[in-house]
Design a protein around this nucleic acid. Structure first.
Lengths: 181, 181
DNA sequence: ACTTATGTGGATCGCTGATCCGAATAAGCC
DNA sequence: GGCTTATTCGGATCAGCGATCCACATAAGT
């Protein structure tokens, strides 16, 4: 990649990061380009879709969450690992308002740039769930997809200004429903 | 209201109903106007915003759900009433893909045309919850807002094509978390 | 310094919802 | 039935969106 292209790409990612943090993932791509002093076409060549931009922007976070799951798998009790990871996932999405929507859409659209990352994340959660179930610490009538749905739904609550204050408590309520006493 | 205006209004509501059922609440207003053989301006004069259109379209459903809550309050046991109403609410939203988003936004935007209906619905749920709590059948650490958030989140799951198949089961899971044994 | 392959961004397209205002028309009156 | 007037209508227009095209600028390799 040419040096100027690399510089534009990095700069765009940085600007997109702040713009999305401020305004949510639905921020106008034209605005991002303007704030980066770059033409809209340039932004769209580096990141052909909004999903591609978010994929580049969130890749590090995704890997972090997946790694965290792996770490918890050996470092904590099955129930603590699951509860803690669930909480981390929900907390993470609050940084990127609206990202839950895109992830839910990406999970069953193999063409989406975010698809792979979402599937990996879901698999990481499924491992923690299976482990807890094997230990008799989580109910057996849910699977990885259910877990992903519940996490996404709780994250969605965190995205709604009116409901966000309850998100933390409701994570506890749902966690209690997943874990067996 | 003039006869032609009334006719246009009713026709628009009917067309909007099918369009939204087919394509979700984000359907283009221009499309609705086209399908109703009417100018876009006419649609927008009758219903100045998408929320106003949905308010007119969903008013009957809202009243039905509220009435159902009132009826259940006397006709069923506290726990059955709550569980059944929760299920009804979630099932209802599946008819109007995307409506959950708008409701969550309307609940803390007093200017929204949907605001009043959402607040009333939330209050109806809160009454059922309080009754179950008084009977010792529901956990005491949640309130009407939490219940609304949970219902909305479950409805949101039902809106996501990839997660919708799990919605029914997850309603049971969450219901189990709300009710005490 | 020159050539070439790469990157850029203004212009444009089709779409969205919002608004304006001249034309059409229903309702009320004589 | 014919006239007047207040209401309603909808084509035209605007600013915004993401997507695409292509003449131009420029970095990289010789």
């Amino acid at each position: 990649m040419r040096a100027d292209a690399r510089k534009n790409r990095d700069h765009l990612l940085a600007v997109a990061g702040s713009a999305i943090t401020e305004q949510g993932v639905d921020v106008s791509l034209r605005d991002i380009a303007r704030r980066a002093d770059v033409g809209l076409a340039t932004l769209l060549r580096h990141f052909p879709t909004r999903e591609a931009l978010l994929d580049a922007l969130l890749r590090a976070s995704f890997e972090e969450l997946t790694a965290k799951a792996d770490e918890l798998e050996t470092a904590s009790s099955p129930e603590d690992a699951l509860a803690s990871w669930l909480r981390d996932c929900v907390a993470w999405t609050t940084e990127y308002r609206g990202v839950t929507e895109l992830m839910a859409a990406a999970i069953d659209d193999a063409e989406s740039a975010l698809h792979a990352a979402c599937v990996t994340l879901r698999a990481a959660g499924a491992r923690l769930l299976t482990r807890a179930q094997s230990a008799g610490r989580a109910r057996d009538d849910i699977d990885g997809v259910d877990l992903f749905a519940l996490i996404a739904a709780l994250a969605w609550i965190g995205d709604q200004p009116s409901l966000a204050p309850r998100a933390g408590h409701l994570v506890d309520v749902v966690t209690g429903a997943i874990l067996t006493k």
